[in-house]
């Protein structure tokens, strides 16, 4: 709307601009405070902080590599499990199920996203971890035990459990975005494919192809969520700063080392090391989210542009 010339307009608009600007101020202040508070470790270790693999707070040695490794591997496990599952659900909801069935199912998937992280963690400790220790772990070791990934001792707590819990939490988010993306693909494309004699699945493949960059966006968004997932992972991943080939071994992620240690970090250098890791996580998730947004926007633009 353009102004109508009264003073009220200017006052009203100024107030709204201040509210909107708050969001920019928050982001700017976040970056400024975190950079300022991580200066001690940036000075002390420089770039070596990110590549150092030893984490010994008692002797002031801080290397973030085990946490970066844990974050990336657990997120990859989550995506490998969550992406096919989410695609399946979204295809079912948009392409196959009649609205009468799709609506309640879509709502239930949304409820899965509404359950708090700490609750997933609790469930992970007392239901999922024992399940992996008693059933899934031995099964994987029996049939795939020759792969180093599945060797090692089985405690139920470790990288795999963290990845699976993350997958459950990421699934509703990826599903929601894929659903939105599929819904934007014009019905005419489906009708055209069906009219040419394509089967239901072949039509779906064509629709998926047209929505590809949006689906990529959904996956990247899921990656962003997985990288930053904190409480549930802290509770089931075992919290041990090691780099191990086995998925059954305990690990550590950036977010979980922050959750588990920040409150006790009284030493200046220790706190700085943790804040610098927070800064790294912040920047990475920021970039990942921006990328996801661009990818999803591209589909929306292309489909409505015609």
């Amino acid at each position: 709307m353009s102004k109508t010339g009264t003073i009220g307009d200017s006052v009203f608009r100024t107030i709204l601009i201040i509210f909107a600007a708050t969001i920019l101020v928050i982001v700017a202040a976040m970056i400024a405070m975190m950079v300022q508070n991580s200066i001690p470790t940036i000075r002390e270790f420089g770039f070596g902080f990110l590549t150092g693999s030893r984490w010994l707070p008692a002797s002031d040695i801080y290397g973030a590599l085990p946490f970066i490794y844990g974050t990336i591997v657990s997120s990859l496990i989550a995506l490998i499990l969550a992406v096919p599952l989410s695609l399946g659900i979204a295809i079912f909801l948009v392409e196959q199920a009649p609205a009468r069935i799709a609506r309640p199912i879509a709502f239930m998937v949304e409820l899965l996203a509404a359950i708090p992280s700490v609750v997933y963690g609790l469930w992970g400790i007392f239901v999922l971890a024992p399940f992996i220790r008693v059933y899934l772990g031995p099964f994987l070791q029996n049939y795939f035990g020759f792969i180093p990934l599945f060797q090692g001792r089985l405690t139920g707590i470790g990288m795999l459990t963290g990845g699976i819990i993350m997958a459950l939490m990421v699934t509703p988010i990826v599903t929601a975005v894929v659903r939105d993306v599929l819904e934007v693909v014009p019905t005419a494309q489906r009708e055209a494919a069906l009219a040419l004699g394509a089967t239901k699945w072949e039509t779906t493949v064509i629709v998926l192809g047209n929505a590809a960059s949006g689906i990529a966006g959904a996956v990247v968004l899921g990656l962003g969520r997985a990288l930053g997932e904190t409480m549930a992972v802290t509770m089931v991943i075992g919290n041990s700063p090691q780099i191990s080939a086995s998925l059954f071994e305990p690990a550590y992620t950036i977010a979980s080392v922050l959750a588990a240690n920040f409150a006790e970090a009284t030493d200046k250098l220790y706190m700085s090391a943790l804040i610098e890791m927070g800064l790294v996580l912040f920047l990475v998730t920021f970039i990942v989210n921006a990328l996801a947004k661009l990818l999803v926007l591209r589909v929306a633009k292309r489909q409505t542009g015609h």
Partner: peptide
Amino acid sequence: VRFFADTLIGVPSIIVGIFVYTL
């Protein structure tokens, strides 16, 4: 503002905790 709001939504909540801790 819209762009930063969207990316802020995706920032892990523990980062917000650290920010408020320092602030």
